[in-house]
Amino acid sequence: MSTQTPPPVATGAGLAPLVELRGIEVVYDAAILGVADISLTVAPGEIVALLGANGAGKSTTLKATSGLLVADRALVSRGSVLFRGEDITGVAPNLLATRGIVHVLEGRHVFGHLTVEENLRTGTFLRRLGRRETERDLDEIYGYFPRLRTKRKTPAGLTSGGEQQMLAIGRALLTRPELVLLDEPSMGLAPIIVEEIFEIIAGLNRTKGTTFLVAEQNIAVSLRHAHRGYVLDGGKVVLTATAADLRERDDLHEIYLGLASV
């Protein structure tokens, strides 16, 4: 866990934010508070880590950004979400996907009865590609995730956890997103697989400029690849800094477990 790579530089720092959350509050079932007050920005080309313990509000924040709150009977009750400067608060998730925001859900939501390749195909549907373009784009994803190619005819539900995570990410990338929201991609995976997945994310970010907002509990790995980070606790942002600065702090665990005052 100590292989330090040189601190990455935020390519989009200083640009107008790609996405901006302005003091949002989210309630589930019109009664349960999901997050209380979250403000954050992600610049184009950045990888931003969203850190925090279980229940801190990471997933809720991502769902508010992708519009998927509706599927959990929740809504943004205060504040607003902006994407490229436009207010997208409460816009339907499938519409946001066509506008360039894709959400890889916590817990690897692959279509279990569809084959690996069918799963990937679904990612291309919103672009209504022809046969040739579809094959070309699938090929590109198989290039990033070679293990998926060997499993292309296997029902996704029968592949390993790591393969499912790669599949969920590959399927999301096929929507040609500008912003990818990743919810705990490391959950339940072996360290070596986690590293592989983060390497691919960082590579995509470098080569294609794809922007990532990544919720994680794995501080070490996520800060090694992110440019900046936010630490959430009790539905609020309690700390934000560059990844390099966050890596320097040895009190992160205490902060987000609410054991220290900031």
Partner: peptide
């Protein structure tokens, strides 16, 4: 199979 995931990719 998964309504949420379907929504997330624009279905």
């Amino acid at each position: 199979d998964d309504t949420r995931a379907a929504l997330s990719i624009g279905i």
